[in-house]
Design a protein around this nucleic acid. Structure first.
Lengths: 257, 257
DNA sequence: CACTGCGTGTGTATAAGATACACACGGTGC
DNA sequence: GCACCGTGTGTATCTTATACACACGCAGTG
């Protein structure tokens, strides 16, 4: 049945799983399995082989149990994934109170970016609802907290946080897609990139995309070396955003003086 | 088999489908079907019932053909989706050359946002590779072109464009998820939102999320009325970004003077 | 005008995967 | 010692994607 819908329909269950009282009834028999072990195995699998390789069977086999045993702990696959997402998100970084908000924001974004590199499958998950897991909320909380001493409105802080989150996630997804495409063709990052570039060029020399083809021709899509040079991609825009916020704050301070 | 991987493995085919010479061989028999009709039907289905409802069978039935007939036009489901994505993306808006870059950027973002509202399933698609379809590229081109007279570097323009794209997409996805969750519970937007808010509150009163709970308590998650009040969400941050770019440009102009 | 080849649509078969259901097993508490 | 309940299992079913081989009919060729 519908994966996303399914998850939504049972989202109550996900909530329970996410926040459930850890005090297992412990009533009787030997619980050889546990939700934690299942999630850990599932994440390991997804890390290693991607979301597509994630099946209830594979997970169960990793733990030497039968497929159905998993359903004792999760009502369905989408709930498993919900919990995987929250678990893989992990705790947000500790942002130094001492530092300025700007630095904190940058740290936050870099940390989120890194988390996506660690668990690329997170970018492929068909999200089933608004974030409600403890870790997901903690990340949002961290972003908001990093803006606390800016004097921004609550709504403004929220706007900025969501914007940042969207930008990091969107960028991470894009570069991850490029990387996957590369892997699929069986070449390494750099070569693939030129492969992609070639494709683009073949299609772009039409005068239909003047700006884009100029950029591609100038080699803008070529990543430097390291994967985090892709991070560069957003750093310019990010800096401008922060500049803009700074300017806004100063202006407002002036007005209130 | 793997959906995403599958698509990647056959991405060559997708490229052909996306850019293929429209001159069908036309060699012989009556082509009662066509890639165009299939895509149109598939989009209609996805618009109406979401991505989960999209199966080869449903699409074929809509056209009164058998499931397998579709495979004459698309090697697999993921290629179909690739083409659906590009088709649904449609042409980017015409951005008035007369207007300033700032206005153009805002128009671009609003247009993209609207497009996502028209085809919410686009936000659920597990992207299978970097954008290579004509329309996708046209959107990117449009974003870049809107920044043409800013004097930004190519790389900077690209950075900003991708950042914007990520932000709009991320935000759209988030609000779409909230909406879906609402629909799944069977309540309308506003009520659901308070439902979501209630859940949050139940979980947030722990002092674990001070900032977030303050914001939620202040009702920040409550959407005004119209759905595009959600768009508000990013407008503040967006304006700051544009401010930042403006400031950067002025500063640079000063330096060069 | 009959022939052959290819493009188009179909029917059938397979395989993967999620998940419902009923049962076996073994401690736990009385 | 016994009834119960939680835990894990085996089997069955349903949904989907997709491979394969075939039927059909028009196009251009003799």
């Amino acid at each position: 049945m519908a994966t996303t819908r399914g998850s939504n329909e049972k989202s109550g269950s996900s909530l329970d799983l996410l926040w459930g009282d850890r005090t297992k009834p412990q009533r009787s028999a030997r619980p050889g399995l546990s939700a934690e072990r299942i999630v850990a195995a599932a994440i390991e699998l997804a890390d290693a082989e991607g979301l597509d390789a994630l099946s209830m069977q594979r997970v169960a086999n990793m733990l030497d149990f039968t497929t159905m045993s998993i359903y004792r702990y999760f009502p369905g696959k989408s709930q498993l994934i919900d919990v995987m997402m929250d678990t893989a998100a992990g705790s947000p970084p500790d942002l130094p109170e001492a530092a300025g908000w700007r630095e904190r924001v940058e740290l936050w974004m870099a940390a989120l970016w890194d988390r996506y590199q660690q668990h690329p499958w997170m970018l492929q998950v068909q999200v089933s609802g608004p974030p409600v897991g403890p870790n997901q909320l903690a990340w949002l909380e961290a972003a908001l907290r990093s803006l606390r001493d800016t004097g921004l409105t609550h709504n403004e802080m929220l706007s900025v946080s969501l914007f940042l989150n969207g930008a990091v996630t969107g960028l991470a997804r894009l570069t991850s897609d490029v990387a996957h495409a590369a892997a699929a063709i069986g070449v390494d990052q750099r070569d693939m990139n030129s492969e992609y570039v070639q494709t683009l060029e073949r299609v772009l020399d039409s005068e239909r995309f003047p700006t884009l083809s100029a950029i591609v021709a100038a080699g803008a899509f070529q990543p430097g070396d390291a994967p985090d040079s892709d991070t560069r991609g957003f750093s310019f825009a990010l800096r401008r955003l922060l500049d803009g916020i700074e300017g806004y704050l100063e202006e407002r301070a002036d007005q209130h003086r």
